[in-house]
Amino acid sequence: MNIFRVSADILHLLSILVLLLKIHATKSCAGISLKTQELYLAVFVTRYLDLFWNFHSLYNSVFKVVYIATSSMIIWYMKRHRGVKQTYDKDHDTFRYLFLIVPCAVLALIVNGRFSLFEILWTFSIYLEAVAILPQLVLLQRTKNVDNLTGNYVFLLGLYRAFYILNWIYRYATEPHYSAWIVWLSGLVQTGLYLDFFYYYLQAWKQSKKLQLPS
């Protein structure tokens, strides 16, 4: 465990909390992609199946439960909460998530560390997490005006990925047999997807303006 890894996990949790807080406080989920949230829940559920037998640390177990619980709450708000679900932008959130799920599943079957059910589900979750933000980015692109909290949510998620890369570099330098190229490549793709968004987010922040994405 190193400072980059802990920072990454906390940033990840913060991003989810920012989103929950926004939905709870404003009773609105405008600008939030339900598709992305459902994909994240699928990522957590398929990756954290080992919750029942892998007691690596209390730290890991607590985070796993919290990630699954908080992302389930977001989905519950968006689909079931009487006020919030009316604000869901379903006409713009039309990304077909099978286009992401099927290729990730096929890739996980072909490229994995070990051919076992749980290893393949874990690998699938790694691939799926890399692209799960796409419906959210497409929705932001379509609606152009991004409210502050949604912008902060995506920014924190990107920051979380960047810190994971620092964690890998640190571990590679300090742990003799540390290597995880499936995770590294997926992580690089995932972080890369945020770069464009980061550029506009930081520009808006520098000029203390509302974040607007170009057409």
Binding site: R5, D50, N54, H56, N60, K64, Y67, R114, N167
Partner: peptide, 10 residues
Amino acid sequence: EEDGEEHDEL
């Protein structure tokens, strides 16, 4: 890869 290796990251 060793059999039964656990994933220690989240």
